[in-house]
Design a protein around this nucleic acid. Sequence first.
DNA 1: GACAACATACCAGGTAGTCGGTATGGAAAT
DNA 2: ATTTCCATACCGACTACCTGGTATGTTGTC
Lengths: 210, 210
Amino acid sequence: MSNALPHESKIKLLDAAQNVFRTKGYAATTVDDICQFAGVTKGSFFHHFKTREELTLDAAAHWSNSTEALFASAPYHRADYPRDRVLGYVDFRAAILDREVPEFTCLLGTLVQETYTTHPAIRAACDKGMSSHIAVLMRDIEAAKQRYAANASWTSESVGYFIQSVLQGSFIFAKAKQGSDVARANLSHLRLYLESLLHQPTKSNRKAKS
Amino acid sequence: MSNALPHESKIKLLDAAQNVFRTKGYAATTVDDICQFAGVTKGSFFHHFKTREELTLDAAAHWSNSTEALFASAPYHRADYPRDRVLGYVDFRAAILDREVPEFTCLLGTLVQETYTTHPAIRAACDKGMSSHIAVLMRDIEAAKQRYAANASWTSESVGYFIQSVLQGSFIFAKAKQGSDVARANLSHLRLYLESLLHQPTKSNRKAKS
DNA sequence: GACAACATACCAGGTAGTCGGTATGGAAAT
DNA sequence: ATTTCCATACCGACTACCTGGTATGTTGTC
């Protein structure tokens, strides 16, 4: 990838794609839709991207970068104890639900469902983006596991995927019900489960080594 | 709805729609795709359905009916204790994962994600279908709750939605990863959580009244 | 012969991608 | 300093194609 920062129109198009795809889905979104939302012309679109699929791949990468930056800078991420960071992640996801549905749902989850058999490259990009997000989360889960449940039979990886799956499923119900009530309730169930996996810490084991 | 049982071609079309939608998604599926899969002509299609959207609504209803029948006749459903039926449901869902991805994923979850802003009627049909499936499941959850966790603060409804959300999220990862490993792991996490909500029964409280 | 259940050719609208062209800004030549 | 040159960014009309839906015809059956 080039290291020069992309032009304004290109970024506008990528951001527009994020929004329109999450609202109308991949296949129902036309190039003109994206151009209109971005406020640029079709000529500009095809200057920056060879095809609609190429834009989609770029948009998936753009999404991964911006979400990773968002979570990295979120306050929960600075908690001292890994367990607090894991639970903080869940709380943070719950806090975001105060918006319109297309604004808190996941681009990659939306895309992959429509393209997994028809557009292998997009499917792979979504898989990669979601997996790398989970990999980051896994670091905290693993650290918390070492501290509170070192001998448990579950893996931090499986818990990472479980968390993401609950989120993705919650998004589907948010779309079906046009609201985030189910998502919110799901996240409290999830939190409860995570608390039980990482047994409630006491002052003493909080003070324990690293 | 008519009480006469629908013609063979109509059923073929509804079944074909189920399969093709789950494979290619709603918007990417053409009427010709469905006709070809069903082995009927376009003329037949538009004889039975006024529009593509009407077929989709019928397909959603058809899906709800056939899945409800499937679960009602599944062996787990005949367990004596409601707790066993709830856990049996999860195990049954896990057992189904031995197939190709489009065969075990949920039509309604797929449809709603693509249509929730653009096709209100389809969105509503999906919501209705998923909610009524949960309502059936809820009966067992509620009965199990009365027995093992009568005073717990969670509602059987929220647990029903949580179970479905884990499933829907699992389907997304099945699509992203082209396999059901994550789904399977998710279902064991889910089972563990449900077991903890409905505390492990002993011989004595199994024998307890009704 | 009337009606349902098809079959097939066709059409109108929409869409991805193309193509010739313009604007702009910076480097190079003079 | 001024002119020339060129690459990048952008514009919008146009095209070839696809797709939902229609119109019209055919077959079988009660």
